[in-house]
Design a protein around this nucleic acid. Sequence first.
DNA 1: GATGAATGAGACTTCATTCAT
DNA 2: CATGAATGAAGTCTCATTCAT
Lengths: 201, 201, 201, 201
Amino acid sequence: MTNSVDRRTQAAQKRRRLAAAAARVLHEQGVERTTLADIAREAGVPAGNVYYYFKTKDELVRAALGEHRDRLDELTAGLDRLPAPRDRLKALVETWVAERETTARLGCPTGTLAAELGKRADGTAAAEAGAVLRRLLDWTAAQFRAWGVSDPEGHALTLVSAHQGMSALTHALRDPSVTTREATRLLRWLDSLPAGPGVSP
Amino acid sequence: MTNSVDRRTQAAQKRRRLAAAAARVLHEQGVERTTLADIAREAGVPAGNVYYYFKTKDELVRAALGEHRDRLDELTAGLDRLPAPRDRLKALVETWVAERETTARLGCPTGTLAAELGKRADGTAAAEAGAVLRRLLDWTAAQFRAWGVSDPEGHALTLVSAHQGMSALTHALRDPSVTTREATRLLRWLDSLPAGPGVSP
Amino acid sequence: MTNSVDRRTQAAQKRRRLAAAAARVLHEQGVERTTLADIAREAGVPAGNVYYYFKTKDELVRAALGEHRDRLDELTAGLDRLPAPRDRLKALVETWVAERETTARLGCPTGTLAAELGKRADGTAAAEAGAVLRRLLDWTAAQFRAWGVSDPEGHALTLVSAHQGMSALTHALRDPSVTTREATRLLRWLDSLPAGPGVSP
Amino acid sequence: MTNSVDRRTQAAQKRRRLAAAAARVLHEQGVERTTLADIAREAGVPAGNVYYYFKTKDELVRAALGEHRDRLDELTAGLDRLPAPRDRLKALVETWVAERETTARLGCPTGTLAAELGKRADGTAAAEAGAVLRRLLDWTAAQFRAWGVSDPEGHALTLVSAHQGMSALTHALRDPSVTTREATRLLRWLDSLPAGPGVSP
DNA sequence: GATGAATGAGACTTCATTCAT
DNA sequence: CATGAATGAAGTCTCATTCAT
């Protein structure tokens, strides 16, 4: 009994280890330039064994997206501990600033993955990437709503879109200051919001 | 003499045709999923012949970026005919709206290319993609400057970043209305700007 | 003691279950396209466990041939209950007719197995398949002999060869009527035989 | 002009060389045990180049079947030079005898191919194998018809089926004398035919 | 310059077989 | 004995790049 549970747990852990390795390597190299051998190596697993856990490369890509979703959930769970919605959103922006060096080198993990997957004939993986972004949209909208701001969905779209945009530019220009500058603006915007509906780009 | 000129012209035309074909196919399929044969076919050129115009696939990718730069120049040249800088910027936003269906399907041509190229060990092609975006940044900043708005570079960063962000989300969610909604906000923002420095996301 | 016998019996049953599953799946898919996992699944046995009963895939293939031999023995044992040798042979032909739909889809189990195994460098398994066919030849010759027909081996060869031929054609053309037509001819031939030595194709 | 024709001819020749090599090696080893490298080696062509002529292994298998069809056509064309239909059929049987050693080792090329292909989910290749056998059936029926024998299709079925059957047994038992014995019977049968409708197995 | 053909490295994937518990 | 997991050797197929005419 314990044995069987242990084994199941170990298998789940290995699956997780592979998914995490995939998330890392895919962020680093992109989907098409990453080989299964790369992921296996990163996970410390022989190449042939990967197929015991994931039947195709595509499944592994989707598992990596699952990792990103899980990390997003951990992040928002942490932010949820802050009492004020506005502070949660500002803290979110701060995490973007904290990641700016990585972003300059590799872009937003989910965003770049979505960009690459979006052009495949099979839209399954792309949809998974979209779902992660929508999850962030939903959480963000919930904060705006709790805060009492009008049109919470619209504000959420603006904030998440701003993140994608500044990540893309930070990456394309290899310039972390893009993130710093835009984040500063976003923080000011968030501070200004309750004052009224405001007009915002 | 004329013959030689003709030939040189013909060669240049073929180069251009290949670059344009590359721009189209790379936007459609992404860099890594596109084969040289794909591009050759799209251009109506025999596969083996491509190498007389571009020594490597990488050169062809850079040529496609050159195409994007040229089209950007044509676009801004057209906008420059409008007398008021604010109207030029608003017209720019309108072109984004006009492209929204394509964006939903394939993303921003330059942005998705930059995302994919940004992860290569060799940064040459990535830099070229960054240069195209910077060109747009520069033109945009020039408009804000001509208009007399404070911190033109900062405002340009916000506008171009917004474009990248809304394109990424439009693509990831396959939802053209993302573009419509964000563009509406940007237009209002541009209209509100001269009224004062404003606080903007 | 009883325990040990039980265990031995259980083991034998599992061996048999695996062999029977192998016979089924190999008939369905052929030797090379069948994986050990396929057979294990069909038998309801975990994959890794197969190797406690059969050291190699080849042994499993031979066990499947053993199954076919056993079924042939059961068939001839049943036919032996008929009093007249000629009626036994005619009943044999009738079983071929009864199997015609399966034959159209998959061919003769032993025949197609023999065809596939016959090209292996290691002739062991092929010999086993040949032995099953020879067993049918022997039984058939015994019937002709008991019947008093001249050259019983020759007549047996003709009958068994006819079965292989019509099975092959039925399968290749996916047409069960091939079996019906040829079987009709064989039955007439068997009926005509005692009249004299006859000339037969 | 001549150049282009030469090249096209050369390409056709290489295709043919590959198909012929495939026919040989597939007969020798069977479909599933034959690798593309095997065929490439037999044809004296580097492995990667095979895909220039045949996009998949399956296409190569079908090309091998095309070879068998062509050889069958050459054979029947040769037989057609004989004036009497009965002599043509007897000569056909003689070719089977002449091939008996190869048959003992490898079986009938088309028959064993059909047996192996018949179990694939995709029935395309199997249908091609069936078509070759039907071609022989048609030619044989035409001879019986020209000869004036009743039920030419039925007689053709019997003769071709006999060939498949004796080839299968010759192969399974590794005994060329099976072919000799059955062929003798068939020749006697053909000789006896005009005497009357006859009863034949 | 132009073109079909050639090449070879490497990717993904499958599976018989073996291990560790 | 049982069983999930591990392993590594192939095998099919793709493609950027180069050749020979």
